[in-house]
Design a protein around this nucleic acid. Structure first.
Lengths: 141, 141
DNA sequence: CTCTAACTGAAAAAATTTTTCAGTAAAATC
DNA sequence: GATTTTACTGAAAAATTTTTTCAGTTAGAG
């Protein structure tokens, strides 16, 4: 099924901004901000508006065609650090965040990725999202 | 070594805004934005400025006393999604991003975390940061 | 082809983050 | 403890990013 069909079946229309945003991301070699996507998109279709880029990204993300990557810059949640531990567990209902140890648990996966991609992995960001024990009883709201 | 000593040894001063931000985060049960930290901080020290919160977070993060959590909202990098795969590998030098499969590699870790914390894990965010093969030769700039 | 409501771009508004600057205070030195 | 230095501070202004509003436009069902 093409992405156009996927959009249609989900009740969305295939429009110029969505087409352009997708094409820009297909050609990109790194994560792009809405601003960057807009700038590149205008080279494909001059009248593309920035607002439409924001809206297209929202729809395309919901449709699973685009993924948001969380980068160092411009992300605004802070918790207290427990030195040496880098993993975070967040409850999607009450928002509670817990750090937990376990860098060594990823070593196998990291070694495998390094072998397959040629990257040298220096750091990582792992966040698990779910429901904490008290929130499991309280319905999904 | 206390956090005050850690700051001093790294050449930073122990000041009111830094003290207040740290105290707010110690009392918090979830990740807080700079705005939220500011609002709570003013209840401890009325004259605390928002700008100082931003600056304190920057310093405390560098000192390893505070950790930034990347949440769904307000993060601006997008890449194309390959359905079903959730992991991303980013080169810190050239910015190139690659998705890679491997959700199943985390199942052991996730089961362990669920057992230890009582959370039910529904989703996760794993990003590896490092140097891609071409960038490994070209120095750290 | 017609119709309708999901869309669009532009402008304005809102919110967030950074810069600037004159003054303050932490902590090293006396 | 007083003096001195300069890393810091809050407020205001500027810059940037994101959302809302609105009058039209257009994708795609019928």
């Amino acid at each position: 099924m093409s992405w156009e069909e996927r959009l249609n079946q989900a009740g969305w229309r295939v429009t110029m901004p969505r087409r352009v945003v997708l094409r820009v991301l297909q050609q990109a070699r790194r994560p792009l901000s809405p601003q960057e996507i807009h700038a590149r998109g205008r080279r494909i279709h001059r009248s593309l508006g920035l607002v439409s880029v924001y809206r297209a990204l929202e729809v395309l993300e919901q449709a699973g065609l685009v993924r948001r990557v969380h980068r160092e810059a411009r992300c605004d949640g802070y918790i207290l650090a427990s030195p040496g531990h880098h993993h975070v567990l967040i409850c999607r209902r009450c928002g509670r965040a817990v750090e937990f140890p376990g860098a060594e648990d990823l070593s196998g996966l990291i070694a495998q990725v390094e072998r397959r991609t040629g990257f040298r992995v220096e750091d990582h960001l792992l966040q698990l999202i779910g429901l904490c024990a008290p929130c499991q009883g309280s319905g999904p709201a």
